[in-house]
Nucleic acid binder design. Structure first.
Lengths: 95, 95
DNA sequence: CTTCTATTTTGCCATATTGCCAAATAGCTG
DNA sequence: CAGCTATTTGGCAATATGGCAAAATAGAAG
Protein backbone atom coordinates (compact mmCIF):
# COMPACT_ATOMS: atom_id res chain seq x y z
CA UNK A 1 0.00 0.00 0.00
CA UNK A 2 1.55 3.24 -1.11
CA UNK A 3 0.75 6.80 -0.18
CA UNK A 4 -0.34 8.97 -3.06
CA UNK A 5 -1.84 12.31 -2.19
CA UNK A 6 -0.40 15.26 -0.31
CA UNK A 7 -2.91 14.57 2.41
CA UNK A 8 -1.63 11.06 2.81
CA UNK A 9 1.87 12.35 3.21
CA UNK A 10 0.76 15.01 5.67
CA UNK A 11 -1.00 12.42 7.78
CA UNK A 12 2.03 10.14 7.81
CA UNK A 13 4.36 13.03 8.53
CA UNK A 14 2.36 14.11 11.55
CA UNK A 15 2.68 10.65 13.08
CA UNK A 16 6.37 10.50 12.29
CA UNK A 17 6.84 13.96 13.72
CA UNK A 18 5.30 12.81 16.97
CA UNK A 19 8.02 10.15 17.19
CA UNK A 20 10.83 12.50 16.23
CA UNK A 21 12.10 13.35 19.69
CA UNK A 22 14.54 11.44 21.88
CA UNK A 23 12.34 11.67 24.95
CA UNK A 24 9.30 10.45 23.08
CA UNK A 25 11.24 7.51 21.65
CA UNK A 26 12.35 6.63 25.15
CA UNK A 27 8.76 6.80 26.32
CA UNK A 28 7.50 4.64 23.45
CA UNK A 29 10.19 2.09 24.10
CA UNK A 30 9.31 1.93 27.79
CA UNK A 31 5.66 1.48 27.01
CA UNK A 32 6.54 -1.48 24.84
CA UNK A 33 7.19 -3.46 28.00
CA UNK A 34 4.27 -2.38 30.13
CA UNK A 35 1.66 0.21 30.93
CA UNK A 36 3.31 3.05 32.83
CA UNK A 37 2.15 6.06 34.82
CA UNK A 38 3.40 9.56 34.19
CA UNK A 39 5.39 9.80 37.40
CA UNK A 40 7.27 6.63 36.56
CA UNK A 41 8.08 8.03 33.14
CA UNK A 42 9.25 11.27 34.74
CA UNK A 43 11.80 9.31 36.79
CA UNK A 44 12.93 7.51 33.67
CA UNK A 45 13.20 10.62 31.55
CA UNK A 46 14.51 13.04 34.13
CA UNK A 47 12.60 16.07 32.86
CA UNK A 48 9.96 18.04 34.72
CA UNK A 49 6.72 16.11 34.97
CA UNK A 50 4.88 18.79 33.01
CA UNK A 51 7.32 18.32 30.17
CA UNK A 52 6.73 14.58 30.20
CA UNK A 53 3.01 15.18 30.24
CA UNK A 54 3.27 17.36 27.17
CA UNK A 55 5.25 14.72 25.33
CA UNK A 56 2.54 12.21 26.18
CA UNK A 57 -0.06 14.58 24.80
CA UNK A 58 1.83 14.73 21.53
CA UNK A 59 1.92 10.94 21.36
CA UNK A 60 -1.75 10.70 22.27
CA UNK A 61 -2.78 13.20 19.61
CA UNK A 62 -0.85 11.17 17.07
CA UNK A 63 -2.79 8.08 18.08
CA UNK A 64 0.29 6.27 19.29
CA UNK A 65 -0.66 5.89 22.96
CA UNK A 66 -3.73 5.91 25.15
CA UNK A 67 -4.35 6.24 28.87
CA UNK A 68 -6.42 4.33 31.38
CA UNK A 69 -7.05 5.37 34.95
CA UNK A 70 -6.16 3.00 37.74
CA UNK A 71 -6.76 4.51 41.18
CA UNK A 72 -4.84 7.74 41.41
CA UNK A 73 -2.66 6.97 38.40
CA UNK A 74 -3.08 7.22 34.69
CA UNK A 75 -1.49 4.26 33.00
CA UNK A 76 -0.34 4.92 29.47
CA UNK A 77 -0.05 2.16 26.95
CA UNK A 78 1.29 1.75 23.43
CA UNK A 79 -1.37 1.54 20.73
CA UNK A 80 0.72 0.59 17.77
CA UNK A 81 3.86 -1.43 18.41
CA UNK A 82 4.73 -1.39 14.72
CA UNK A 83 6.34 2.02 15.22
CA UNK A 84 9.01 0.34 17.28
CA UNK A 85 9.86 -2.11 14.55
CA UNK A 86 10.85 0.97 12.66
CA UNK A 87 12.90 2.32 15.52
CA UNK A 88 14.69 -1.01 15.73
CA UNK A 89 15.33 -0.91 12.02
CA UNK A 90 17.03 2.44 12.46
CA UNK A 91 19.00 1.23 15.44
CA UNK A 92 20.41 -1.54 13.30
CA UNK A 93 21.11 0.88 10.51
CA UNK A 94 23.54 3.24 12.14
CA UNK A 95 27.10 2.03 12.39
CA UNK B 1 18.31 -4.89 18.97
CA UNK B 2 17.00 -2.25 21.34
CA UNK B 3 18.18 1.29 21.90
CA UNK B 4 19.37 1.99 25.41
CA UNK B 5 21.19 5.25 25.94
CA UNK B 6 20.05 8.82 25.46
CA UNK B 7 22.53 9.06 22.62
CA UNK B 8 20.93 6.13 20.84
CA UNK B 9 17.56 7.77 21.09
CA UNK B 10 18.95 11.09 19.91
CA UNK B 11 20.50 9.44 16.86
CA UNK B 12 17.27 7.67 16.00
CA UNK B 13 15.25 10.80 16.59
CA UNK B 14 17.39 12.80 14.21
CA UNK B 15 16.76 10.29 11.43
CA UNK B 16 13.07 10.18 12.17
CA UNK B 17 12.96 13.95 12.28
CA UNK B 18 14.45 14.07 8.82
CA UNK B 19 11.49 12.01 7.60
CA UNK B 20 8.90 14.04 9.46
CA UNK B 21 7.82 16.34 6.67
CA UNK B 22 5.25 15.70 3.92
CA UNK B 23 7.54 16.96 1.17
CA UNK B 24 10.40 14.79 2.33
CA UNK B 25 8.15 11.74 2.47
CA UNK B 26 7.07 12.48 -1.07
CA UNK B 27 10.70 12.76 -2.12
CA UNK B 28 11.64 9.52 -0.40
CA UNK B 29 8.74 7.74 -2.01
CA UNK B 30 9.70 9.01 -5.44
CA UNK B 31 13.28 7.89 -4.95
CA UNK B 32 12.06 4.42 -4.18
CA UNK B 33 11.34 3.96 -7.86
CA UNK B 34 14.41 5.51 -9.40
CA UNK B 35 17.27 7.95 -9.10
CA UNK B 36 15.93 11.45 -9.64
CA UNK B 37 17.42 14.89 -10.27
CA UNK B 38 16.48 17.96 -8.27
CA UNK B 39 14.63 19.68 -11.08
CA UNK B 40 12.41 16.64 -11.53
CA UNK B 41 11.66 16.61 -7.83
CA UNK B 42 10.90 20.32 -7.93
CA UNK B 43 8.21 19.67 -10.57
CA UNK B 44 6.82 16.86 -8.46
CA UNK B 45 6.81 18.84 -5.24
CA UNK B 46 5.85 22.23 -6.58
CA UNK B 47 8.03 24.25 -4.20
CA UNK B 48 10.87 26.54 -5.11
CA UNK B 49 13.96 24.62 -6.15
CA UNK B 50 15.97 26.08 -3.28
CA UNK B 51 13.40 24.69 -0.88
CA UNK B 52 13.63 21.26 -2.47
CA UNK B 53 17.38 21.46 -2.27
CA UNK B 54 17.19 22.17 1.44
CA UNK B 55 14.94 19.19 1.99
CA UNK B 56 17.42 17.02 0.14
CA UNK B 57 20.20 18.33 2.32
CA UNK B 58 18.24 17.33 5.40
CA UNK B 59 17.77 13.83 4.01
CA UNK B 60 21.43 13.60 3.04
CA UNK B 61 22.61 14.69 6.47
CA UNK B 62 20.41 12.03 7.99
CA UNK B 63 22.06 9.41 5.78
CA UNK B 64 18.85 8.57 3.98
CA UNK B 65 19.86 9.60 0.48
CA UNK B 66 23.01 10.18 -1.54
CA UNK B 67 23.75 12.01 -4.78
CA UNK B 68 25.72 11.17 -7.90
CA UNK B 69 26.57 13.61 -10.66
CA UNK B 70 25.58 12.77 -14.20
CA UNK B 71 26.36 15.57 -16.61
CA UNK B 72 24.63 18.68 -15.40
CA UNK B 73 22.33 16.83 -13.05
CA UNK B 74 22.69 15.48 -9.60
CA UNK B 75 20.84 12.20 -9.33
CA UNK B 76 19.64 11.43 -5.84
CA UNK B 77 19.03 7.91 -4.69
CA UNK B 78 17.56 6.24 -1.64
CA UNK B 79 20.08 4.69 0.72
CA UNK B 80 17.80 2.85 3.08
CA UNK B 81 14.52 1.56 1.71
CA UNK B 82 13.55 0.24 5.13
CA UNK B 83 12.28 3.70 6.01
CA UNK B 84 9.53 3.22 3.48
CA UNK B 85 8.40 -0.02 5.03
CA UNK B 86 7.69 2.13 8.01
CA UNK B 87 5.84 4.70 5.96
CA UNK B 88 3.72 1.91 4.52
CA UNK B 89 3.05 0.57 8.00
CA UNK B 90 1.69 3.97 8.96
CA UNK B 91 -0.34 4.23 5.78
CA UNK B 92 -2.03 0.99 6.73
CA UNK B 93 -2.54 2.20 10.27
CA UNK B 94 -4.67 5.26 9.74
CA UNK B 95 -8.33 4.67 9.21
C1' DC C 1 38.40 31.60 -21.02
C1' DT C 2 33.41 32.89 -21.28
C1' DT C 3 28.78 31.69 -21.09
C1' DC C 4 25.08 28.86 -19.85
C1' DT C 5 22.56 25.54 -16.87
C1' DA C 6 21.60 22.97 -12.73
C1' DT C 7 22.16 23.20 -8.14
C1' DT C 8 23.55 24.99 -3.61
C1' DT C 9 24.17 28.51 -0.21
C1' DT C 10 22.82 32.55 2.19
C1' DG C 11 19.82 35.95 4.28
C1' DC C 12 15.57 36.98 5.93
C1' DC C 13 11.09 36.42 8.13
C1' DA C 14 7.20 34.03 9.99
C1' DT C 15 5.94 30.20 12.51
C1' DA C 16 6.54 26.04 15.43
C1' DT C 17 8.81 23.48 19.11
C1' DT C 18 10.97 22.67 23.55
C1' DG C 19 11.21 22.76 28.42
C1' DC C 20 10.75 25.08 32.68
C1' DC C 21 7.77 27.23 36.31
C1' DA C 22 3.45 28.38 38.36
C1' DA C 23 -1.29 27.71 38.50
C1' DA C 24 -5.35 25.00 37.46
C1' DT C 25 -7.76 20.65 37.13
C1' DA C 26 -9.38 15.74 37.76
C1' DG C 27 -10.68 12.56 40.45
C1' DC C 28 -9.63 9.25 44.37
C1' DT C 29 -9.95 8.80 49.46
C1' DG C 30 -11.73 9.37 53.77
C1' DC D 1 -18.02 17.44 51.70
C1' DA D 2 -12.66 18.57 52.22
C1' DG D 3 -8.08 17.31 51.41
C1' DC D 4 -4.79 15.13 48.78
C1' DT D 5 -2.19 13.36 44.74
C1' DA D 6 -1.34 12.77 39.90
C1' DT D 7 -1.65 15.12 35.92
C1' DT D 8 -2.59 18.92 32.70
C1' DT D 9 -2.56 23.67 31.19
C1' DG D 10 -0.85 28.44 30.36
C1' DG D 11 2.75 31.46 29.75
C1' DC D 12 7.34 32.54 28.56
C1' DA D 13 12.12 32.60 26.52
C1' DA D 14 15.25 30.21 23.70
C1' DT D 15 15.91 27.72 19.75
C1' DA D 16 14.77 25.32 15.43
C1' DT D 17 12.28 25.00 11.07
C1' DG D 18 10.14 26.12 6.39
C1' DG D 19 9.99 28.67 2.40
C1' DC D 20 11.06 32.30 -0.84
C1' DA D 21 14.37 35.21 -3.29
C1' DA D 22 18.97 36.66 -4.40
C1' DA D 23 23.67 35.58 -4.79
C1' DA D 24 27.25 32.06 -5.29
C1' DT D 25 29.11 27.78 -7.16
C1' DA D 26 30.20 23.60 -10.12
C1' DG D 27 30.61 21.75 -14.20
C1' DA D 28 29.16 21.57 -19.38
C1' DA D 29 29.42 23.65 -23.75
C1' DG D 30 31.23 26.50 -26.89
Amino acid sequence: MKARTKNDYAAQASIIKAMAHPTRLLILNSLRKKETCVCELRDLVGDDISTVSKHLLVLKNAGLVAARREGNWLRYRLLCPCVLNFADCLAGLKK
